[in-house]
Simulated scan of single mutants.
Amino acid sequence: MTGATAKQRRVWDKSASSYDRQIALVERVWFGDGRSWLGRRARGRVLEVALGTGLNLAHYAPDVTITGIELSPEMLAIARRRAADLGRAADLREGDAEHLPFGDGSFDTVVCAYALCSIPDPRAAIAEMARVLVPGGILLLVDHIGSSVDPLRGAQWLFERVTIPLAGEHFTRRQIHLVEAAGLVVEETERLKAGTVERILARKP
């Protein structure tokens, strides 16, 4: 594990107990129905990368098989409790998005929500997501990105001067180019909230 990854684990362990409360307003006002958007499109054997406290678990269809990877043990413990409360069978494991512990072509769908903004090497993480997909499998991403409105993007850049060193949180990243570089074909994309939130559905050829 790199130093940057270890730092991220400490950050998320520290915030795990208050995370759901802290993000509740952001979910309603900024992220909207992003989690249900993911859930409606996931199919078959699903891997969720960086599942956090398991907020997506309630949105998956009953017939999908869920595996989840989370770097933070504290976050993972909350996700496991949430799965149990929902009566949702899920294989939830501690792991690193940049080094997924699965063989090539293990999943029909890979999901990552609001996490690539803080994963130290998003290029490596997306390459790993592509690797574990079956041919024809889909990658579903939702994340906050750099705005398409220049003044707002400038404000995001200034905000990053604090959030990157403090918590490894980026606001001007955009993942679509990394998805294409990993050899996936983008079939659906949508930018919302002045271009600050992007949803991507990409398929492995």
Results as ranks from 00 to 15, higher is better:
A127G: 07
M75W: 13
E94G: 14
A4I: 07
T67Q: 05
L140K: 02
F107Y: 02
L184N: 01
H99F: 12
A77T: 14
Y114S: 04
L57M: 10
G154C: 09
L38M: 10
E198V: 03
S148G: 09
I145R: 01
C117D: 04
D85N: 15
H170T: 04
K7V: 12
F159W: 14
I138F: 06
V132R: 00
A97M: 03
A83T: 02
L158R: 10
Q156L: 00
G136S: 07
T53H: 10
I23C: 08
V149T: 09
H177S: 15
Q8A: 07
V26G: 11
V149M: 07
V110A: 05
G95C: 14
L55G: 07
V162P: 03
F159C: 08
V111K: 00
K7M: 08
P135F: 13
R35G: 07
E128Y: 03
A50E: 03
H177E: 15
R191W: 13
E70F: 14
T65H: 13
H177P: 10
G183F: 06
A130R: 00
P62E: 15
F107T: 01
L201E: 04
I66S: 02
G103C: 06
T172W: 00
G95E: 13
R41L: 05
I66P: 02
L25T: 10
V132H: 00
G146L: 01
R173D: 06
E98Y: 05
D121C: 11
G195W: 03
A79D: 10
L116W: 00
A115S: 11
S106L: 04
L76N: 02
E98L: 09
E27V: 09
V197I: 11
S72H: 12
W30S: 14
T172Q: 00
A130W: 02
R191H: 10
V29W: 15
V11F: 12
Q156G: 01
Y60H: 07
G195C: 08
P151S: 07
F159V: 11
R199K: 12
A181N: 06
I126M: 07
R10S: 14
V186N: 02
L158I: 09
A6P: 07
R82V: 06
L86W: 15
G195L: 09
L57F: 14
